[in-house]
Design a protein around this nucleic acid. Sequence first.
DNA 1: AGGGTATGTTGACAGTGTCAAGATAATTCA
DNA 2: TGAATTATCTTGACACTGTCAACATACCCT
Lengths: 209, 209
Amino acid sequence: MMSENGHSYHHGDLQATLVRVASERIRQHGIDSLSLRKLAEDAGVSRSAPYHHFKDKNALLSAVAAKGFSDWHDKAKHIFGDKTASAPVRFRQFVHAYIQWAADNPQLYELMFGRTLWQSGNATEELKSVAYPSFQFQVEMTRFWQQQGVLCSTQDPLRLAQVTWGTLHGIARLVIDGVYANSSHLKEMCDCAADVFIQAGVSVPSDQT
Amino acid sequence: MMSENGHSYHHGDLQATLVRVASERIRQHGIDSLSLRKLAEDAGVSRSAPYHHFKDKNALLSAVAAKGFSDWHDKAKHIFGDKTASAPVRFRQFVHAYIQWAADNPQLYELMFGRTLWQSGNATEELKSVAYPSFQFQVEMTRFWQQQGVLCSTQDPLRLAQVTWGTLHGIARLVIDGVYANSSHLKEMCDCAADVFIQAGVSVPSDQT
DNA sequence: AGGGTATGTTGACAGTGTCAAGATAATTCA
DNA sequence: TGAATTATCTTGACACTGTCAACATACCCT
């Protein structure tokens, strides 16, 4: 039964609405200032209604992060699968795309890879099942680039993947967390990182982004 | 005038005591679970006494972080100034020491380099005055290692410093934040990172830590 | 001695996440 | 169909939090 203000006693699709509204609030105001109560108000629902769809605040944040992972994973696959560019060029493109995506979605990135969800086993099973394949993909890409001679082939793929990902993650975090007050030279930093990793002798026109 | 329970109405050195107790609580229980009220109770003082020594919670955390910076800076200078080891060996040692220090002081590291203090200009002037020289030192070391042929000399020292530091920071964060559930291969990761950065042709016995 | 300042205390306020108990709607089943 | 079960939503409540105003005490300097 519809009430006069346009929604029934039962919201209909509160679960999805909460994730959507939460994502938007996080994008605009960050994670810290996100309160379940304001969120519920935004969704036009009372303060403890969300608890019928999410165990607690942590579970809701996990759902938001999970969506972020699948979005990023799609993007990464798209870049990696672009057959029109050479392997070294695609590596450089990937470096730029990673940092750019992080810089474009700072709050979401922080949620996805920050301590809020991962420390002390807070991560939901659903989140893990989405995130781990994304981590694994990083290793697969690394192995491919090693085979192509783009990255050093004598290193263990897993270790090298951890280091390359660590580098991207570190730069992203320093920028996002505001430690680098000046983020105007992001592109140059990306190119420098790519230069360091790409094996000598590989031809890489640096003007291709 | 001393009361019977052993402390006067005026605490005597509450400022230093608060920083000390806060550091200890942070080390043991993390930043999130630190409340000013419990902290005050630990220091044997009422809940709003700290406000006579710190503008707000943020200022107190800044003081804790500042102490962390000076501690780390001392350690870094010590390693870098060790004249008994060759330049490449010292670089490798620095990599290991950085990650090890971060892994040994996870909560403090997170406070020092995390968004809590740096995002949206929360950092105290005092904190900045301690942190910035520490950042600058990273650039000086990088320049030195470039001159010694350990690191690629064709890169801009500032950019390369950002990338090398970014790498260390990224690995540290991934481990600290619990994204790498398994941190048992830290040493191998450090060696892999050092291998990638150290220029080919430089002799580096990897068994020296 | 007395006034000013530094420091400490209690009371209060608005905010938070979370739960229990009760209300309402949808769904399932006899 | 009607009744019972289940899903969903609401209000009340609790224990927290950071922070401020008002007041109390102790120290310091003239």
